[in-house]
């Protein structure tokens, strides 16, 4: 299945992209699995605080990913 990943804030600097299409080979994959996978692709994510939203709603890490999901990686912002 193919999903869209969106990155915000500091995560854009880490991944060098705002968005990418990602192919998940597994038939059944959780958000937790995806998080680990992306932290393997972009190792600096391991050292960064962020939360994950699926299709514009906050989601728990045990959510099962579906084809065409739009998954956003959201770090806290500090600027004021």
């Amino acid at each position: 299945m193919t999903i869209t990943l969106k990155y915000f804030g500091l995560l854009v600097d880490i991944t060098n992209k705002k968005e990418e299409q990602f192919f998940v080979e597994e038939n059944k994959a959780s958000l937790s699995f995806l998080k680990s996978k992306m932290e393997g692709v972009y190792e600096e994510l391991k050292n960064t605080n962020y939360t994950i939203a699926v299709n514009q709603s906050m989601s728990s890490l045990d959510y099962t990913i579906k084809d065409q999901d739009v998954i956003a990686f959201l770090p806290p912002f500090a600027g004021g």
């Binding site: 960064t48 605080n49 939360t51 806290p76 600027g79 004021g80």
Partner: peptide
């Protein structure tokens, strides 16, 4: 609830560090 982590693993830059355009705030 949104950001449960209290200790920031990587320092989160503010406007002094990252810069800002006046129109955004």
């Amino acid at each position: 609830c949104l950001f449960p982590e209290t200790e920031s693993l990587k320092a989160v830059p503010n406007c002094v560090v990252s810069g800002v355009l006046g129109v955004l705030p």
